[in-house]
Design a protein around this nucleic acid. Structure first.
Lengths: 192, 192
DNA sequence: TTGCTTGCCGATCAAATGTTCGATTATCAT
DNA sequence: ATGATAATCGAACATTTGATCGGCAAGCAA
């Protein structure tokens, strides 16, 4: 049980480096087993705990808990930095974290400060999932007068409206012909 | 060539959903091939372009460019971006964009709203480069009273101080014993 | 002691894997 | 037409895969 934790760590490291799960044979090599049935048993144990899972064809893949983050302690909480984080074991990339539907996702650089109160600064990048369907409250990229606009989708009476997150900008009321390009599912920014 | 782009998208979607690469047989099923050699040929093509790679045991895994996403840089003008299929599209991966020194970089989840005016919301992730040297004006993760704190580094007279980006929080004046854990080089956030 | 559980080994099996080859088709420039 | 190229197919190959079985040793409770 306690040993399994170390085994899991090794598997996470492998996945982090290779971006693919090892085969049973590779697991043996990795963990020092000499029989693949040992690997199979270990995998069965870890599956029960939700750390591993299988493809429909029986191949190994990460389970839901596989990515449980050992995040470098909360900013507020105490703890020494050396203790909270040792290795650079990021099992998942930012891309995988932010993008769920790669084929429908594009990055757009934000111009202007109309969403600044929502924490979107000029030149930020937003991750946009291209689709027409959006819910009220979603941040959307809409097409107004042939131009892209980043706003929050709202509804007034029976009409959809676009709210900026900056009191200096007006609410946009497209009166029926509102075209939505996509929905903002993420955002990122680089400093320096 | 153009068709391969669609094929790649399908593989990316599969990987994003399954967190594992499909086998050749699965690729056939996914893309409508009826021979695994077709899948092998496609994989060989995508490997050459750096989108795919192989494990040491021959299993498929994502290549370096696998996580690239299309970048719609200047969004302002023009009606539809789909018309802008003039050859080389800009692509980026968020990880490469945000992380320059992987071995010295960690992600920290932000607790609290002390930097809200700087566009850092609670639960945002900040990309922190671990180093002691920072410049005035840099956003830093400092260790004050044994706790991590996200603030902007400033100087008053001959002392370093930490400015929050929220008028509700006080300026921190460590009086000499200021320990800097790292410098914020990026930030990202996921919606929904 | 006895009995039970847990983890690992060694061996075996059917199924799935990636690879390779030759043949076929479609496209396009000559 | 002719030839070249690219993409797909169909079939065969040797390996590797994950699954399964019985057996063994260590730990622990009764």
């Amino acid at each position: 049980m306690g040993e399994d934790t170390n085994y899991l760590s090794a598997l996470q490291d492998y996945y982090s480096a290779e971006r693919a799960m090892p085969s049973f044979a590779k697991i043996c090599q990795l963990l020092g087993f000499s029989s693949r049935s040992s690997a199979a048993a270990l995998v069965a144990r870890l599956k029960l705990q939700g750390y591993l899972d299988s493809t429909e064809t029986g191949r190994l893949k990460p389970g839901k808990r596989f990515f449980e983050r050992e995040l470098a302690g909360d900013v507020v909480k105490a703890g020494m930095p050396s203790a909270t984080y040792d290795g650079a074991r990021d099992t998942i990339t930012v891309d995988e974290y932010l993008v769920e539907k790669p084929s429908k996702t594009i990055m757009i650089q934000v111009k202007g400060d109309s969403m600044i109160d929502a924490g979107i600064l000029p030149n930020d990048m937003v991750v946009v999932e291209k689709r027409q369907m959006a819910n009220v409250g979603d941040m959307v990229v809409a097409i107004v007068d042939g131009e892209f606009t980043l706003k929050t989708l709202g509804r007034e009476k029976d009409e959809f409206v676009l709210y900026p997150a900056n009191p200096a900008y007006p609410v946009i009321r497209p009166h029926g012909n509102l075209e939505i390009f996509g929905v903002v599912v993420g955002q990122f920014r680089k400093y320096g």
